[in-house]
Design a protein around this nucleic acid. Structure first.
Lengths: 194, 194
DNA sequence: ACCGGAATGCTAGCACCGCTAGCTTCCCTG
DNA sequence: CAGGGAAGCTAGCGGTGCTAGCATTCCGGT
């Protein structure tokens, strides 16, 4: 039994190693640099080992996405709770800028979560917990300013606006220097007055 | 001189053929199906011919993007002008739903414009004319509701929100059935009252 | 009218991709 | 201490974007 558990532990450790190596490599050189050969070399195993842990490259990206989502939620929570004493609008603004800052600092992880990996259940109860957590943080910031609107739908709308700003800015469609200004406008629209 | 011009005309025609073939193939089977071999077969030439017209696959996608942008602008204009008699909010709503509808009907073209192709100048004076036209249509709808805010920046923000809704919905991150509801909420935030 | 040269488009191939079949090697179990 | 199963390797398949180098074809000058 002990030997078995040790093996399982080592296996789980190696799986973590794969995911973090993929995440770091993607962050450093972009997802196009994350090839199965390169990743295998990075973890000092051969390619087929990857496929004994994950069904394919997509599954590895999905794993990075789930882990990254947990990180995102972990950043959003203190930002929101820390700003709540300053009012609903301040909390919303804090969540918004933390969100876009995460996307700016970790673009590859952000893409894994929100742009590339498709084989993850999202808007369903079967969605991975970290994913629902991250959404829950935005929801908690939007709910107080929802007024008569459905909070969940309004959260999705606000989140989509943040996502659009992130992707268009990073893709060069929007000049980055006015980002804060746009963010302020958006928050003003969703939490007017104070 | 006449022979020369005929050759140039034929060459231009073939270039158009490549772009429309790429666009149709992408729309029918997704960009992953648009390989240089497949595209070459489609236009009944060999692969290297593609490279005598475009620097690479990315340049072909960029050409599809520019053409698609012209189409988008051509759809936005009548939608906006047709709804303007019904008020600023109606015009904004018309532009918004026309925009997202375009993205839904032509996802591959939309991706070429706003997600994939990166080697196009966007927020600069050197941006291709169709691109500036499409932005100008959204601007014309947003400007009347800008109040004290910078119209251009507010347009970018509204556009980003539309873009976020489009990409998250299509990527399965948002359930499609509530799309109209979210759109209505967004328009309400940017053009409150009437 | 014809021949030389340029341009045009082809075949074949490079280096790389994701992924897998099948063999070897090693370690745990009885 | 032998046998069996798991674990990880090498090698390879079909595909990708892209390019070198060779035919062929057609135009322009004498």
């Amino acid at each position: 039994m002990s030997i078995q558990t040790r093996r399982e532990r080592e296996r789980a450790e190696r799986e973590r190693l794969i995911v973090t190596a993929a995440q770091e490599l993607a962050e450093a050189e972009g997802w196009s640099a994350v090839t199965t050969r390169r990743l295998a070399a990075e973890i000092e195993y051969s390619q087929p080992v990857l496929y004994s842990h994950f069904k394919g490259k997509g599954a590895i990206m999905a794993a990075v996405a789930v882990q990254g989502c947990a990180d995102l939620a972990a950043e959003l929570r203190p930002a929101r709770t820390g700003a709540e004493p300053d009012g609903r609008r301040a909390a919303l603004a804090a969540v918004a800028s933390t969100y876009t800052d995460f996307a700016r600092r970790r673009p590859a992880t952000y893409d894994a979560i929100f742009t590339n990996a498709v084989d993850l259940p999202f808007a369903t109860p079967e969605a991975p917990a970290p994913l629902r957590d991250a959404f829950g943080e935005i929801l908690a910031a939007v709910e107080p300013v929802a007024a008569a609107d459905d909070p969940a739908l309004l959260t999705e709308t606000f989140w989509a606006a943040l996502h659009g700003l992130v992707t268009l800015t990073r893709g060069g469609r929007l000049p980055a220097e006015a980002h804060d200004h746009r963010l302020a406008m958006l928050v003003e629209r969703f939490a007017p007055g104070d």
